[in-house]
Design a protein around this nucleic acid. Structure first.
Lengths: 212, 212, 212, 212
DNA sequence: AATGAATGAGAATTCATTCAT
DNA sequence: CATGAATGAATTCTCATTCAT
């Protein structure tokens, strides 16, 4: 019984940081870092202001934690994707993007890119951390698909590095639109992803007829 | 001589609001609205903080002015583009995008989209204003090109509304990257635009051979 | 064995208040009352912050206890000194001061005067308590020595009440210096006490020649 | 007229720091640094809390300024004393101490030693600054008097360095008592100084008979 | 018009105190 | 008894806004 209650308490304590991070993520995304009050973060997490400081030593530290924690699922997903890297590269690209959307499109994690866009200027080290851990790795995955596609004659010749950016841009914007210019953002993500994939795959693919 | 200096002073006086807006734009882009101090805006514009209040009744009003002023060139450019709306639609689309980049890519105006992304949640009316005046109009132009291209058999069939968004996304991201996640932002815009246009035009175009 | 551990625990339990007081004394002396955190006091005493409140109902109460506890040895020493109050008064004065230094000079108790100097303004009742129990009694002892010395023709005539203060000042400062302006405090207490006793005894004593 | 009002304003602005420092000195002496609220300092200086930050960037900076400003009169007085350093050394010592009392005994500056005693542990750099600029210089002056007195055969032989401390202690304590253990502080400074000077001069002086 | 000193409401942070376990 | 997580009042510090000059 005592063990039980201790565990309960311990479980609660262990959950606190995550709860606070989740609350903070939501508010940072919605309002921006500077405009978010720690009072509100604490309230949203259902604790008092002081409790926040039991787990994070400053607002900046909380920000950092939000990003670091937010990155985990992305990295994990990336690792998973790596394993199936074989076969038809067009299909692979499609798979990659769809997974990306599943991960980011309907979960709180999706707010991370918006935060990084808005706040990277004020948090250079965090931006670097994000760049090294998320952007670089994501680009690595995409690079593989594109290069193999070109080599296999599936894709047209291209400037791979630049094309990576061009291809990522629409899915990033889709995410960003979720949280910005909200009224106009009433987009249908399914249709968007469909149009997007149709467009870029068509744009990348070697035209069969060309060979004729 | 006195006349001269008066004119100079008057000119300067009349320029004040613009100077302040320019300074504010730069800082809002760099740091975000909430993190920007009016002290710094005034200092950057070379006036005292009190002077700022002679021209803008609050920080919010300054924000609004920054957006409104920032929109003028965009609207003007849009009007110009409208006039040449005939001929080859692929070329027109290319022209449209290149003009867009010229307008946004190397001028302070380019910061506006980043600001709107970051702050629209905190300024719903401004966001609506921006939506009604910039986004809607921009989409109108693009819609015309795309629809005429489809009708003319130049472009493949498509969901036009969604495709507008997909097509705009990469150029928006290019702009946003200029001000965010700085390290990764070391992109070559020329190459980027080239790859981008190549990809989407190829993606949009009816395959000539298909007709065979 | 159980008995043993219970005794141990009991002994420890009974020692708790003293340990807490000792820890508090050290920190109050070092940092001052307001700047001392109860967290640190508890940590230094090896208990949790909550435990502190089992023994003291508030930070103020702890302060009071520190002073009261700190006064015991001083009072005890005073009582002892009273018993040998006879014989050569110069020697007695010397003895008095040397004992005082033994008591205060190398023990934690020595911090009490510094605390009283720093905090008496914020704790008037404690200051009164200290005054009534320590200062008044100490002065009583000194008064006896001085008055008897004057009566016996050993000491010159003097304003006894004032001289008490003048005589006490150097030993008090010696103690205070131990904890203040630390760098300059590299004084040799032995030499200091020697010079001090030499000076004041010489200053108090009737000049032999006067008799001539 | 404009010139006049500008000067008035300027004069006011220039006076602010001193007014704030004076208010802070008083409260720091009375309550200690940590227990003094900036609100109260500002109120006592007749300004708002925010104004304080126009002149001092933090509470610590204010503390430093209080000490630095408080030291000026002491240093100035020291410089003046240096000039009359000739003649009878006993008289010189008397003069030195009386001047010291005039300077510290009835002015706010007198609080400085108490502050240094209480807070030096928390402000090591300030303590060093104080040591280098006040204590060292004061000791230098006293050393001269004592050494010359010994050389001239006026004073008995002594350990000069230690005696400096012993001699300074009573006047320091007199000052400290002004602000501490208030009830016991009801001392008559005139009588105290008289007894003090009588005692130490008698204690220092060569006994006339010795010459016999 | 322009200035910049002054303000005070508001936000981050600290820490004595409480209380469920 | 003992713990340490949680609290929230109190304090430092910031900055948009005002206003006398």
């Amino acid at each position: 019984m005592k063990t039980n209650s201790i565990q309960k308490s311990r479980r609660r304590k262990e959950a606190r940081p995550s709860e606070l991070i989740a609350a903070a993520l939501e508010l940072f995304v919605e309002r921006g870092f500077a405009a978010t009050k720690l009072d509100d973060v604490a309230a949203k997490a259902g604790v008092s202001k002081g409790t926040l400081y039991l787990y994070f030593e400053s607002k900046d530290a909380l920000f950092k934690a939000v990003i670091e924690q937010g990155i985990f699922p992305i990295l994990a997903e990336g690792a998973t994707l790596l394993q199936q890297f074989e076969g038809n590269n067009a299909a692979l690209l499609k798979e990659f993007m769809q997974r990306w959307w599943q991960l980011m499109g309907n979960t709180p994690v999706g707010g991370i890119p918006k935060i990084m866009i808005s706040e990277s200027g004020n948090f250079p080290e965090v931006a670097n951390y994000y760049y090294d851990n998320v952007i670089v790795r994501g680009r690595d995955l995409l690079r593989q698909v594109l290069e193999r596609g070109v080599t296999a004659g599936e894709f047209r010749d291209m400037d791979v590095e630049t094309t990576i950016d061009v291809i990522m841009a629409p899915v990033l914007m889709l995410i960003v639109w979720r949280y910005s210019v909200a009224p106009c953002g009433t987009k249908d993500p399914e249709k968007y992803m469909k149009s997007y994939l149709d467009l870029i795959l068509n744009g990348l693919m070697m035209k069969k007829e060309t060979r004729l």
